[in-house]
Design a protein around this nucleic acid. Structure first.
Ligand SMILES: [Zn+2]
Ligand SMILES: [Zn+2]
Ligand SMILES: [Zn+2]
Ligand SMILES: [Zn+2]
Lengths: 132, 132
DNA sequence: TCGTATATTGTTATAATATAACGTTATGTA
DNA sequence: TACATAACGTTATATTATAACAATATACGA
């Protein structure tokens, strides 16, 4: 079997929903909202999310246990991600900065190891929240 | 009341246990192991962990939902952390690299924002696992 | 087109992670 | 002392995620 080219029914439904949100969604909130489309159980959502994360269409915000659609056509494979997270309003933005990604992809630790895969989460206050 | 100077009883018990482990521990594994010392409920462990994370003695490995003692005397405040994680044996190492931390602390996103707080997780294979 | 391997689905139950809500006790400070 | 804050203890519950099993769909070569 070839590497999957097209998304399955459940994968499409979940991706559609997450893309429309424009912000990270929790798995059970996704579940609740796609129940009218036939996905009844958590596993159906988690399985779709797993695949979508694997192929880079969706990223998991680890510190929030939430899922957001990729806004960065560069990370077709979900192995090098960076986000900024507002600690007040929880707004999350995917960072698309080639200098940063180059720096991190080329980073060598003290033992000389390189890592092509990473996840970086910045925390602070977004502009709106800073001006309150 | 002053900013806390000394750890409380439960905080000491949990920190002791996590420091001896030398690897990330799950909250419920900590709970199980400190029950002989009197911590009976999850909340007792989670509250101690919360405080210890807040003061930088312990870090949470977000992608693993696990907790590890800080090996880096520099991050007395737990706001700028970096780890390497082996995807095969799950070995986790805290990265202590001043160039990296300077680069990330000074990083400005496209809107000009800086973030003093971040968490970075690198993924790959540790030396042992690579040579298998 | 048949056989086979792999991917996806559907379903129920359960595991693992984390917090709410309440009241009590300890500790620091005026 | 009186007051505020921090820590503790306890029970119940919320939230996040996976195990296990059976069925169906899809791709592809013989
Ligand atoms: Zn992306
Ligand atoms: Zn904000
Ligand atoms: Zn540290
Ligand atoms: Zn390893």
């Amino acid at each position: 079997m070839q590497k999957q080219q097209y998304l399955s029914k459940n994968q499409k439904i979940v991706l559609d929903h997450v893309e429309k949100a424009n912000q990270p969604l929790k798995a059970y909130s996704i579940l609740y909202n796609v129940q009218k489309k036939g996905l009844k159980a958590p596993l159906q959502v988690y399985r779709a999310l797993d695949k979508l994360v694997e192929i880079g269409k969706i990223h998991k915000i680890e510190s929030r246990n939430a899922f957001v659609a990729c806004k960065n056509s560069n990370c077709l494979v979900s192995n090098a991600t960076a986000f900024s997270i507002c600690e007040s309003c929880e707004k999350v933005t995917e960072i698309n900065n080639s200098k940063l990604s180059k720096y991190l992809s080329n980073f060598e630790d003290n033992s000389g190891m390189k890592y092509s895969k990473y996840n970086l989460e910045f925390f602070g206050l977004c502009k709106k929240c800073k001006n309150k």
